[in-house]
């Protein structure tokens, strides 16, 4: 392990994360993993944390971490300056992630991305991707298998056992395992798998347009 990588040991499982990686963690132990991280005072963006801010307004909160043009930042994140008590859930998530991007070397997210509106979900994925490119780490602890296809690596921990730790597309080939533990597959991956079984395609196409064009070529 290089010194500048990030790691933690959960029970007997050693997990290492390289700089620039985006990792999804799924399985039956997500809650315990988050509790474990919080007990070690590791910063995790949880549902509860969305109701825990320090200041009264959005600008005041951001100014704790940023001393340049906050209006520009608000515009980038499609936020406006108002009292934090008036923020809806989607705005709270964006503000929390924005602050973490400004202040953390590693962002750990606990199952909240599916609460974002569609455009904001795409925006946050883009921002997290840019953050990744600056050699930072994103760990998304999630129940939503659809979110995994945006990460590089997928870790599945089930009943305190590490069942899978691999590049996302390789991990998603473990169809039987994923179905057995109730996670299923992302829609586009499942569609690819069935079409391969029927002999209609012979490799993965992860965009709808790419897949349809291949079927009709």
């Amino acid at each position: 392990m290089q010194e500048d990588n990030y790691y933690f040991n959960y029970k007997d499982i050693n997990l290492y994360f390289k700089k620039g990686e985006s990792i999804s963690i799924l399985g039956s132990n997500n809650d315990e993993i988050v509790s474990f991280l919080l007990s070690k005072n590791i910063h995790v963006i949880t549902y509860k944390s969305l109701y825990e801010f320090n200041k009264k307004t959005v600008k005041e909160e951001i100014s704790m971490y940023y001393d340049k043009n906050i209006d520009e930042l608000l515009s980038e994140y499609n936020l406006s300056n108002k009292n934090i008590s008036e923020l809806n859930i989607c705005e709270r998530i964006k503000l929390k992630i924005l602050i973490s991007i400004l202040s953390e070397e590693t962002i750990i997210i606990d199952n909240i991305l599916s609460l974002l509106d569609d455009n904001d979900y795409k925006l946050i994925l883009k921002k997290l991707n840019e953050y990744n490119k600056n050699e930072k780490i994103v760990i998304n602890i999630t129940n939503n298998i659809e979110e995994t296809i945006f990460g590089n690596r997928l870790i599945i921990i089930y009943d305190d056992k590490l069942l899978c730790n691999d590049y996302t597309l390789i991990a998603l080939r473990e169809e039987k395992l994923l179905k057995r533990i109730g996670l299923g597959l992302p829609f586009i991956v499942e569609l690819n798998k069935y079409l391969m079984d029927y002999g209609l395609i012979n490799k993965y196409y992860l965009t709808t347009t790419g897949l349809v064009n291949e079927l009709w070529k």
């Binding site: 509106d117 569609l191 709808t208 897949l211 349809v212 009709w216």
Partner: peptide, 18 residues
């Protein structure tokens, strides 16, 4: 409306172009 298009509808809509 800033809402996600259901995956199955997105696929079928693309397919119907052909």
């Amino acid at each position: 409306l800033n809402l996600k298009i259901p995956d199955i509808i997105k696929f079928i809509t693309e397919y119907k172009k052909h």
